[in-house]
Measured scan of single mutants.
Amino acid sequence: KELVLVLYDYQEKSPREVTVKKGDILTLLNSTNKDWWKVEVDDSQGFIPAAYLKKL
Rank of each mutant, 00 (worst) to 15 (best):
D24K: 07
Y52F: 12
T19H: 07
L26H: 06
Q11I: 14
K55R: 12
P49I: 05
K38A: 10
D9A: 05
Y52H: 13
L5Q: 08
D42Q: 13
V4Q: 00
K22C: 07
T32E: 14
K54F: 08
W36M: 06
K55M: 10
L53I: 05
K54R: 11
Y10R: 02
V18M: 13
P15G: 11
L28M: 03
Y8P: 00
L7S: 02
L7R: 04
F47S: 04
E17P: 09
G46T: 12
K38R: 10
L29M: 06
D35L: 14
I48H: 01
L7T: 04
L7V: 06
K13D: 07
L29F: 03
K22W: 04
L26Y: 04
T19A: 06
G46R: 11
E17T: 11
K1A: 10
L28W: 02
I25H: 03
W36E: 04
L3S: 07
V4N: 00
P49F: 06
G46K: 09
L56G: 02
D42E: 13
T19Q: 06
P15K: 10
E17M: 08
D24M: 15
S31R: 06
L29T: 04
D42T: 08
S14D: 10
I48L: 13
L3Q: 10
K55W: 07
S14E: 08
R16G: 15
L53D: 02
Y10D: 02
W37F: 04
T32V: 09
L56S: 02
V41F: 12
N30W: 06
V41N: 12
N33F: 07
F47T: 03
L56K: 02
K22N: 04
Y10S: 01
V18C: 09
K54I: 12
E12H: 14
V39R: 00
K55G: 05
V6L: 02
D24A: 12
W37R: 00
I48Y: 02
F47V: 06
P49V: 04
T27I: 15
D43R: 10
V39L: 03
Q11T: 14
A50V: 07
K22E: 07
K21W: 07
V4D: 00
I48V: 15
L56V: 10
V39S: 00
K34Q: 11
T19N: 08
V6H: 00
G23K: 01
K38W: 13
E40D: 06
N30L: 08
D43L: 09
E17Q: 12
I48A: 13
I25G: 00
D24P: 01
V39F: 02
K55P: 09
D24S: 09
T19K: 08
E40F: 06
Y52V: 14
N33V: 05
V6Q: 00
L53V: 12
K55D: 04
L26T: 01
V20D: 00
R16N: 14
Y8R: 14
K54Y: 09
Y10E: 01
L56T: 05
A51E: 12
Y10C: 03
D42I: 09
G46I: 15
Q45P: 09
K34D: 11
S14I: 06
L53T: 04
L29W: 03
L56N: 01
E17W: 07
P15T: 09
A51P: 08
N33L: 08
S44T: 14
W36Q: 03
L28Q: 00
W37M: 02
L3F: 14
V18P: 02
V20S: 02
A50E: 04
L26G: 08
L28R: 01
Y52S: 08
V41Q: 08
K34M: 09
V41A: 10
D43E: 12
D43W: 06
W37K: 00
G46Q: 10
Y10L: 02
Q45I: 14
Q11E: 13
L5G: 01
W36L: 05
K13F: 10
L56E: 03
D42R: 14
F47R: 03
V4A: 07
K55N: 07
D35H: 15
G23S: 03
D35W: 15
D24Q: 15
L28A: 02
K54V: 13
Q45C: 13
T32L: 09
T19P: 03
N33P: 04
K13M: 11
E40P: 00
G46F: 15
E2P: 10
L3N: 05
S14Y: 09
A50N: 03
K1Q: 11
A51D: 12
W37A: 02
E40A: 13
R16P: 07
K55S: 07
T19R: 08
Y8M: 13
Q45M: 11
K38M: 15
V6F: 01
K21A: 07
N33K: 06
K54T: 11
V18T: 06
L3I: 07
K55L: 13
L53W: 01
S44A: 14
T27F: 10
T32D: 15
